[in-house]
Design a protein around this nucleic acid. Structure first.
Lengths: 354, 354
DNA sequence: GATTGGCACTCCGTGTCTTCGAGTGCTAAA
DNA sequence: TTTAGCACTCGAAGACACGGAGTGCCAATC
């Protein structure tokens, strides 16, 4: 059966009405909404066709129609109008994004909160590393005789520190030497290589010095592992409860559990197609069971040269795709611009040690 | 009216049954549960008395009784048995707490998650500073000609860092000098004092040097502000949904909103009585409107010398106080021990600069 | 052939009524 | 003081009718 122009208009009218009201749409309502000058009976025939084509569903024999997942898919791919952000909206986003650059984790977290607030949906955000991250340099700062701060900087310019306590006393020159060893033997390596280098070192160095190197390298491994682990932040999960599709707790709970990241097992298995910078997953297109009646709209943005972030909006399949995609893409662009502005330095540059 | 021993036993039986089942308890059930060798009619008389005394309530004329807030209060204060943790439970807590010491924020966050998991209730955790925090020392690490890392360490031994980019090039000796200035003029000061010192410095120093000092001091102010801000973490809020009292979304939503910290306005206004290290707030004892039907059990623990953490469990008034208090106090003790163990160095000690 | 009005049918949601059962309060007897 | 008995209350659950919204189909019309 052919999808005529009129069918498309009807489908679109149904979807947009359903997005707005969450109520099944009847033929009479469509007759008015679609702006077609035909009677409800005609619409009924067309709607029956659309149902046959799998684009609509009827919850019960005598209810109106609701869009199916493939109906939404068609809508998103072909029918949807570009939603234009109002000045107010862009202004609000800009203001909200005027955050000071702090540690990357916090920025990501804040960004999620902001987006959740302006989109009224839950938001998850995560970062991932394009290539392997390595340590670019180590700095050791003396605190007391038996404690120093280890500062580790990765080639992605993430800096982390930790206070390391040691049993024995330590002099400033010893610390210098340690630093030299670390910077010459434990930079630019993958995690495995670092572990190997550590093993090798154990055999031909004094136990005391080795112990301290081990402590620092273990911290560095933690940092690298942490960066690889793709920490996921979520914000605004209670927005879920504002939508009628989640008024039944049975629906809401597994999703909220998953979003709030409480089962370590059930992570968000989000496949992101790297070829485009905006992805939409509608209902059953999600692999994760908890997301069967849920849609995810996500966008990626660059953080420096070697990292990328993904930020996504989660909502019922009935979510307002036009608005969400518009806001999300503006948001992701802003983030890319923000991170590109050089607040976070580029990953290149010589190893410039003290 | 006097609260006889038998009345207490009856009250206790009712509360413990209600805690277990969330169903109003009838006289017949109590006759069995309380282990008193009297008939249900006698129990009825006693229950009528307890209701008059405000310790029980009846939802409807012909339902059983449920405990009132003051009933719970009496139970918590006098009637409750010390719940003994099983070996399994302590072991589970110990294992879960075997976390590596990272940044304080992360540790607090993890601790909340762990406690939430073992208690099956939502948990919030926050830190607060006993006195004013000051910067103990600054370290500046060269990265490139026009970027350096500022490492700020507070007298509470929190270490934070930030990459600072500057327009002009900078030499190693210049950086050294900067560091000396910072460490001599901007340590041990309150935030206001730091701002004043910065103003004073502006008048009698070259603009270029001042600009850089300003950037570092501003970062330090951020850090101090951050520490004062009492970041609150929450974990396991979806556990709320497991309890029948929150099956109605109207009940659950405001509470979840508050817990997930989404309204910046409505923080958790938790009054903690510092004189004892375990606090229980039952239902209407909570000032916050969203917590009227909710109880909070919280404990405090020490972090180093100048900080304390508060970690609390949130649940329905019907929550299992005996179990929760037992687990929570063990947990808080473990945390105190953990932080005391010197993984995080004490706040004292001379300013030991490089 | 497409469109339309008409009509019977389906199904849901609502309101009402009844029944059932659990639990109470009271009274009188032990 | 305790207990058995009994009437009473009230909510929960089931049965039933009703109205409304929407559909599908058919015959008439353009």
């Amino acid at each position: 059966m052919e999808l005529t122009e009129r069918k498309k208009r009807i489908l679109r009218a149904i979807i947009e009405s359903y997005i707005a009201t969450a109520e099944p749409v009847g033929s009479k309502a469509v007759a008015q909404l679609a702006g077609l000058d035909v009677s409800s009976a005609t619409i009924r025939n067309e709607m029956a066709d659309l149902t046959d084509m799998g684009l609509l569903e009827q919850p019960h024999t005598s209810a109106g129609r609701i869009p199916s997942a493939s109906g939404y898919r068609l809508y998103v791919n072909e029918l949807m109008d570009e939603h234009q952000l109002t000045m107010q909206e862009t202004q609000r986003i800009n203001e909200a994004l005027e955050m000071r650059m702090e540690e990357l984790d916090r920025v990501i977290d804040r960004a999620g909160k902001v987006l959740s607030k302006i989109s009224d949906y839950p938001v998850f955000s995560m970062t991932s590393v394009k290539d392997i991250v390595t340590v670019r340099r180590y700095d050791l700062l003396m605190v007391e005789e038996n404690a120093f701060i280890a500062v580790v900087m990765t080639d992605t310019s993430v800096v982390r520190n930790k206070i390391i306590r040691i049993p024995d006393e330590l002099s400033e020159p010893q610390l210098q030497m340690l630093s030299t060893i670390l910077n010459s033997s434990f930079t630019g390596l993958s995690m495995d290589q670092m572990r190997q280098a550590l093993e090798k070192m154990e055999t031909h160095s004094t136990p005391g010095a080795f112990r301290m190197i081990q402590l620092v390298v273990e911290f560095a491994l933690e940092v690298l592992g942490d960066l690889r682990r793709q920490t996921i932040h979520t914000a605004g999960i209670t927005h879920l409860l504002e939508h009628p599709e989640y008024k039944s707790l049975d629906k809401a709970k597994p999703l909220m559990r998953c979003l709030s990241n409480e089962d370590d097992a059930a992570r968000l298995p989000i496949p992101f197609d790297g070829n485009q910078n905006m992805n939409i997953l509608i209902g059953p297109e999600n692999v994760n069971e908890a997301f069967r009646d849920t849609s995810v709209v996500m966008a990626s943005y660059d953080i420096g040269d070697n990292m990328r972030g993904v930020i996504g909006v989660v909502g019922p399949t009935r979510m307002d795709y036009a608005k969400v995609t518009a806001r999300l893409s503006y948001f992701a662009d802003s983030l890319t611009r923000m991170f590109g502005k050089g607040e976070l330095p580029p990953a290149s540059g010589p190893d410039d040690l003290e």
